[in-house]
């Protein structure tokens, strides 16, 4: 079947098997390997992307379900050489150790700030409950998200 979607601002149409998962479409068809596959069971959140602006786990969605949608991956956040405010906050606050969870963590955090622009620390922790960091580097991740919420450029956009 054919699926058409806008990925990071570029529209594309591809012929895919109905069973193709969105994460495999993004990585293998669109060549965007920034989205990682971690647990592959909708638990860890490493594969989090935005579909029509909201965080989803792309391992638990068919590419066919995203037909017609706007998809944003980690590659779509930066504006040229300028990092997105959330990426900048993760860098500034060292919100990563090995980095494997980071793309999903950043995308989940962008979605979180859209829904709650000025979250409390507890709201950040609860809002990121769908993303696991095996380095257990949660402290700095939470600090980064709180800092991004205060950034002037609007990290939820």
């Amino acid at each position: 079947m054919d699926v058409s979607m806008t990925v990071n601002g570029s529209s594309r149409t591809d012929s895919v098997e109905p069973r193709l998962l969105l994460v495999h479409y993004l990585r293998e068809v669109a060549g965007l390997t920034g989205t990682n596959i971690g647990c592959d069971t909708s638990s860890c959140g490493a594969c989090t992307v935005l579909v029509d602006g909201e965080s989803v786990k792309s391992c638990t969605m068919l590419a066919a379900q995203a037909d017609g949608a706007e998809v944003t991956t980690i590659e779509g956040l930066a504006d040229g050489e300028s990092m997105h405010p959330m990426q900048e906050a993760f860098r500034e606050h060292h919100g990563l150790q090995c980095g494997y969870c980071t793309p999903g963590m950043v995308m989940a955090a962008v979605s979180l700030l859209k829904e709650i622009p000025n979250p409390t620390e507890a709201q950040v922790r609860e809002g990121l409950e769908g993303n696991l960091c095996r380095c257990t580097g949660y402290h700095n991740i939470v600090q980064a998200v709180l800092a991004a919420a205060k950034a002037p450029a609007g990290a939820g956009s």
Binding site: S42, G45, V51, S55, V56, K57, G130, N131
Partner: peptide, 9 residues
């Protein structure tokens, strides 16, 4: 239910 990503779908 689940987590925010799950609740979005």
């Amino acid at each position: 239910v689940g987590d925010p990503q799950v609740r979005h779908r």
